[in-house]
Amino acid sequence: MALHSSAGAPEGPLLAEPGHYDYAPYRGRPRIAWPGGARIAVWVVPNIEHYELDPPINPRRGGWPRPTPDVLAYSWRDYGNRAGFDRMADVMARHGVRGSVSLNVAVCDMFPDIIARCCELGWELFSHGVYNTRYMYGMDEAQQRALIADVRNTIFRASGQRLDGWLSPALSNDETTQHILAEEGILYTLDMLHDDQPMPVRTRSGRPLISIPYSLETNDVPNFVLRNATADEWAELVLAQFEQLRAEGGTVLCLPIHPYIIGAPHRIGALDRVLAHIAAQPDVWLATGREIARHFIDHHLAEFDAWIAAGTPA
């Protein structure tokens, strides 16, 4: 079965666009002032995941490329939770960079020592579903709400934290997901890649939800697995992204990483160099997702809404 299949798509007309935001040109926008006069907010997003050896198959996306058990695919990812995590956490801690964890919450049950270390380091935990092999494609609304409740309860039980952020597992959101996130009181979503700044998300209830930048550009998986980058090439790309966004100001740099990729012994030095550079700059706000969302909602959301309502004047 193909990785991306149209099988299992909803009956009836398909959405031609997400419909959650209006066009907003990158000029004339209200100025975002980050805390402390910083020009850029930087947040590092470790994706701490578990991929099941024998997952049930979702009608819209196939399973592992090989017959079960796909030892190669499974054990490659399992390296992150066995060997890569501590390397990654050590480097982040050395530079005083907190993580905002995109968490498959089954990890709370399977590897409580990993979650304990995240909590010791003051990291935020947000939702990346239960397993990275359980997609949201085709879930009805009650199923999506049940998933959200499971994630919220599991994160609270493991860390005492409130669930504020959402990245659908494997970016597998369905048509109604953003509406439900808003109704469930989620603060921020990462399912959309349409901007370098936080943006309001329009949903059917009108309840507030914002999008903050995630990234598949700086993300280690597309770079190392799909684009075959070396560690040095990745570091150069991330720092170029950082310097450009910093020069533009009022922006967000998101650095999504995966312990099974960045935690490999030939790559961890690149993360060390990237974080050393970023953490040494004076005009950087090293933040978590929750902090970025809160700051934007409290200080800038109303003026962005007003600017968009006024037709985005230059």
């Binding site: 359980r134 879930m139 049940a146 499971d150």
Partner: peptide, 12 residues
């Protein structure tokens, strides 16, 4: 549409 309820069960 809806998914088989077992899709939200996690026996392991």
């Amino acid at each position: 549409m809806t998914l088989d309820p077992r899709y939200l069960e996690y026996p392991s």
